[in-house]
Amino acid sequence: MQQQEIYTQLTSIFHDLFDDDSLVLTPELTAAEVPEWDSFNHINLIVAVESRFKIKFQTAELESMNSVGHLVNIISQKVAAQGR
């Protein structure tokens, strides 16, 4: 799965979760830049991402995640490891 496809799917998740179709995902985007991205919505985001991509994050991965770009990299690695 190409990173552009991951960004496309993540954009859909972000638009639905944060109810904001104007959100543009960039590798540098962080939770601090999205007003509604609080701890509760972070959990919802992780659950939605795991469901959409059929992956599971490890606790250490979640703790080190600091931007959308990092999230995309982890998704890409996990999907590749599954042979997709």
Rank of each mutant, 00 (worst) to 15 (best):
A60P: 13
N66H: 15
F18L: 03
I55G: 04
L62S: 13
K78E: 00
E33A: 02
S12Q: 08
V34N: 04
A81M: 09
E36I: 07
L45E: 03
F40W: 03
T26Q: 07
A48N: 10
K56T: 12
H70D: 15
E33C: 07
F53T: 05
S64G: 11
P35I: 00
N66K: 14
E63G: 01
E63D: 02
I13E: 05
D16M: 08
I6D: 11
K78W: 04
E36R: 14
S22L: 10
N66L: 00
I13M: 06
V49Y: 05
D16L: 06
S76W: 12
K56R: 14
F14T: 15
F53Q: 05
S22Q: 01
E5D: 14
E28M: 13
Q2S: 15
A81F: 07
I55T: 10
L10E: 04
E50K: 05
S64L: 11
I74D: 08
R84G: 02
V79I: 03
E50I: 01
N66Q: 14
A48S: 12
S39T: 08
L29E: 14
A32K: 15
M1P: 09
R84Q: 11
A32Q: 09
A60M: 10
P35S: 02
Q4E: 13
V47S: 15
I13F: 11
K78G: 06
L10I: 12
F40R: 01
V34T: 08
Q9F: 00
D38Q: 02
S39A: 10
A31K: 07
Q3C: 01
V79L: 02
K78I: 05
I74Q: 05
N73S: 13
S67A: 11
V72Y: 09
T26V: 11
S76I: 01
M1N: 00
Q2P: 03
Q2I: 01
E50C: 03
Q77K: 05
N73V: 10
R52V: 04
E36W: 01
L25P: 02
R52Y: 03
V49R: 14
M65Q: 11
N73D: 15
F40M: 06
S51C: 04
S51V: 00
M1S: 13
D20M: 02
D21Y: 11
V72L: 13
I43W: 12
V79N: 00
H15E: 13
S67W: 14
G83F: 05
F40S: 06
V34A: 10
L29W: 03
Q82T: 06
Q58S: 06
R84N: 12
K78C: 04
T59E: 02
I13D: 02
M1D: 09
S51A: 09
I46M: 11
G83A: 10
L17G: 05
I43V: 14
F57A: 09
G83R: 09
D21W: 00
S22P: 04
A60Y: 15
N41Q: 14
R52E: 10
D19E: 12
W37K: 00
T11N: 02
F14C: 05
E61G: 09
D19F: 02
F40Q: 10
A80S: 11
H42Y: 11
L62N: 13
E5N: 08
A48G: 00
Y7P: 01
L29N: 13
L45P: 01
V47I: 14
L45W: 01
T8W: 03
V72H: 12
L10K: 05
A60E: 14
L29D: 09
F18H: 07
Q9Y: 00
H15P: 10
D38M: 08
T30Y: 04
N41M: 12
